Computed example of a mutant assay.
Amino acid sequence: MIERWDEADDARRIRSRPRTIGEYFAAEQPLLAPLPDEPFETGRLFTLRVDRYSQISVRTNRYSVPVRLIGRTVRAMLHASELVVYDGRE
């Protein structure tokens, strides 16, 4: 299904531009650098203090964390799924 969407998008024109998206990409593709060999982090790292209610605030959301962390500083990685990980655990 995604491949069909990509094909349809390749044939699409943006407003009154003379070429399609696929044609523009074909011209740009040889200029693109290869992807890096090593993985890279796409999430955003936050350093947060655990409040007295055993919660942290990441942007507009509050998450419960273990009570033993009250008053401590923790690091939370925010990804598109908004999963909070501490010490390698969710």
Rank of each mutant, 00 (worst) to 15 (best):
82 E>G: 01
10 D>E: 02
41 E>A: 14
36 P>N: 08
63 Y>M: 13
49 R>M: 13
51 D>E: 07
62 R>L: 13
85 V>N: 10
88 G>C: 08
84 V>D: 00
14 I>P: 05
66 P>G: 08
52 R>A: 15
44 R>K: 12
13 R>D: 00
56 I>T: 08
23 E>F: 11
78 L>R: 04
6 D>A: 09
12 R>S: 12
73 T>S: 12
41 E>R: 15
55 Q>C: 11
8 A>I: 06
24 Y>I: 14
33 A>H: 01
41 E>D: 04
53 Y>V: 12
46 F>K: 08
40 F>S: 08
85 V>D: 02
61 N>K: 08
25 F>N: 09
29 Q>T: 07
21 I>P: 03
88 G>P: 06
8 A>N: 06
68 R>N: 15
58 V>Y: 00
55 Q>N: 10
27 A>P: 09
65 V>H: 03
25 F>P: 05
11 A>N: 06
59 R>Y: 02
34 P>N: 05
68 R>V: 15
63 Y>W: 06
1 M>L: 09
61 N>V: 02
45 L>V: 07
83 L>S: 00
70 I>F: 06
37 D>R: 06
39 P>N: 08
74 V>C: 14
32 L>P: 07
54 S>K: 13
81 S>W: 00
45 L>P: 04
85 V>K: 12
2 I>R: 07
50 V>Q: 02
50 V>T: 05
57 S>Q: 15
2 I>D: 01
40 F>H: 05
88 G>W: 01
87 D>A: 14
33 A>S: 05
4 R>D: 03
64 S>A: 13
67 V>T: 09
57 S>L: 15
34 P>H: 04
29 Q>I: 12
46 F>E: 01
18 P>W: 07
51 D>S: 14
32 L>W: 06
6 D>T: 12
28 E>S: 07
49 R>S: 15
29 Q>Y: 02
88 G>A: 10
78 L>W: 00
5 W>F: 11
49 R>C: 12
69 L>N: 10
57 S>G: 15
63 Y>G: 13
62 R>I: 09
12 R>L: 12
33 A>D: 00
60 T>F: 01
81 S>V: 00
20 T>K: 12
72 R>K: 15
27 A>I: 14
7 E>R: 14
70 I>M: 08
69 L>Y: 09
69 L>W: 03
8 A>F: 11
23 E>D: 01
45 L>Q: 03
45 L>R: 06
67 V>G: 11
33 A>R: 05
89 R>I: 05
35 L>P: 01
15 R>D: 10
74 V>R: 13
20 T>G: 12
58 V>W: 00
74 V>H: 11
46 F>C: 12
24 Y>C: 14
13 R>C: 07
82 E>H: 00
75 R>H: 06
31 L>D: 00
26 A>T: 12
7 E>M: 13
7 E>G: 12
50 V>R: 09
